[in-house]
Design a protein around this nucleic acid. Sequence first.
DNA 1: TCTTTTCGAGACGTAACGTCTCGTCAAGCG
DNA 2: CGCTTGACGAGACGTTACGTCTCGAAAAGA
Lengths: 197, 197
Amino acid sequence: MTNATRTASGRRRNEEARLAILTAAYELTAEAGYPDLTVEGIAARAGAGKQTVYRWWPTKADILLEALALKADLKVSTADQGSFRAELDTFLRDSATLLAFPGVVPVLRSLMAEAQRDADFRRRFQDGFLTRRRAALETIVDRAAARGDKPPHLTPDLAADVVFGLVWYRVLATERLLEDEDVTAIRRLLTDRSGKE
Amino acid sequence: MTNATRTASGRRRNEEARLAILTAAYELTAEAGYPDLTVEGIAARAGAGKQTVYRWWPTKADILLEALALKADLKVSTADQGSFRAELDTFLRDSATLLAFPGVVPVLRSLMAEAQRDADFRRRFQDGFLTRRRAALETIVDRAAARGDKPPHLTPDLAADVVFGLVWYRVLATERLLEDEDVTAIRRLLTDRSGKE
DNA sequence: TCTTTTCGAGACGTAACGTCTCGTCAAGCG
DNA sequence: CGCTTGACGAGACGTTACGTCTCGAAAAGA
């Protein structure tokens, strides 16, 4: 986003305006909801012109996507802890904490909803968020495999489908948050031996 | 939907118009996508007046919800087959078949997207679809429990979260369909003993 | 027959869209 | 230093679909 290549002279982009727009969009979504989020409203709260918004972002949703990355205390740890079980547990708990952060759930809902309507944004959302999250979990599973710690039949793809499937389903289709017992249940499901067939 | 209580006299509801509207909405969504789906377009294709649409459905999404129930070859079997493994396998394969039916995926995406924007429709979607699907899977898990066939630690809620989580995540966040190997993987994950802890 | 309710059709005001045109203001180039 | 380039805030503009409303006709019970 926000093209990097700069060829010639001219006035530079106003970083304050950029941040004002990002926070305005994030806050308005948390307060009033995505349907009432308008480009005109964002520009007004940010004290910016409409053209300034359209110059840098193709869509409201792209603003929120960048705003989410900004809030990116997306610090979901994938550090080596010696065991698959411990790392998966931490990953899930960090994810639960992230979801509990004010405004994150409404923004995630809005982004996924918009990805269903706009095929172009769908691609940007996948590249800029979804696949990055998968990759994070993948490193954990791969390390477990290298360590000989990985349950048989568990592929990185399956782990990602199950973990993110459950998290997104909870966010989109229910009102239930991710509790400690949920973390325990899903961790046990993925780590317990499943040797027979 | 389509209020049932009837008090007095007057002209009766036109069933042909109802079906024409449902199929028009379903087809338009499959063809052009939800964003280009307009009430005016639905009415035009169905040969109906706009007011006729607004009289019976509060929202475009409610039309699709009813249209989906109409296509309700939603025949995902929950019949007793003697073993949890066999029933879960059938449930998943039936679900995969349903998703492969033309138009179902775009409609599901549209419904879930709309549920994120409209809190009122969200409730109707949950009551009219999501919880019904959960209930279907729940009967399988409950029967397994009664049979002594159920893996320890597997609750109906966890099973539903994992199964529907994976299915919805695939539909909403990826382009991958539900293949045979996916069915096998998820079935194995849920049926294999996880005895220790 | 009279009343009630639905029907198709379309006019109406409203709201946000995305494009555009202003005049102004910064930053690099010669 | 002065010219050129591009971003800035502000807002006008035509477009589109919204949801409401009104119309005359048609059906069905009382």
